[in-house]
Amino acid sequence: MHVLLGWSVLTLVFVDELLAMAAVGIWGWDRDPRWLLVWLLPLAAMTAWFLFASPKAPYGGGLVRPTVKVVVFALACLALWDAGQEGWAVALLVFSVVVNGLAQLPAIRVLVDER
């Protein structure tokens, strides 16, 4: 049962990461040149995540990984807020804090460490 709960939380963490990328794209949609920013901004966020925040990040370290995660999620929430989606910004912030907090529980961390 613990394993099922753990993988469910990790799935929600992945969904949270996808939502953060979408939030940055929404902000890009509100700006000019729309056609470029709607793709470029999420790509930049994904690249930062890949390089510094993912579990196998080549440049992620003890302090770097959590810092980049906080920055990416904070910018995603701010992007939604600035795009006029205040309710969704707050919802994303709460969801991000809850699922990433749950992912830090020892029973769930062990699933990540096993991989």
Rank of each mutant, 00 (worst) to 15 (best):
W88K: 04
A57H: 05
Y59P: 03
W49R: 06
V71L: 14
L5I: 14
V94N: 10
D30V: 08
A83Y: 07
A57D: 08
A20K: 05
G28N: 06
A74G: 12
D113Q: 15
L105F: 15
G84C: 02
G62R: 15
L111P: 09
D16G: 08
T11D: 08
V99C: 09
V13D: 04
W49G: 06
I26S: 01
V38W: 02
P58N: 13
M46Y: 05
W7G: 07
A20D: 01
T11L: 15
A53L: 03
A48E: 03
P106I: 10
L36Q: 06
V94K: 10
L105V: 13
L51N: 09
L51G: 10
T11C: 13
R115W: 11
A91R: 00
L41R: 02
F95T: 06
W29E: 09
D30E: 13
G84V: 04
L102K: 02
T47D: 11
L37T: 00
A89T: 01
E114W: 12
C77G: 02
Y59L: 15
A91P: 03
L41S: 00
G28F: 03
V70Q: 08
F14A: 07
D32I: 00
L5C: 05
A74F: 15
M1P: 14
F95P: 01
L80Y: 08
T67C: 09
I108R: 05
W7A: 02
L105D: 13
W49C: 09
V38A: 00
S8R: 01
A76Q: 04
S8P: 00
L111N: 04
K56M: 09
D16H: 08
W7H: 14
R34Q: 13
G101K: 02
A48Y: 02
L36I: 14
E86S: 14
P55H: 09
H2M: 14
G62Y: 12
F50N: 08
K56E: 11
L75I: 10
V13I: 07
G6A: 05
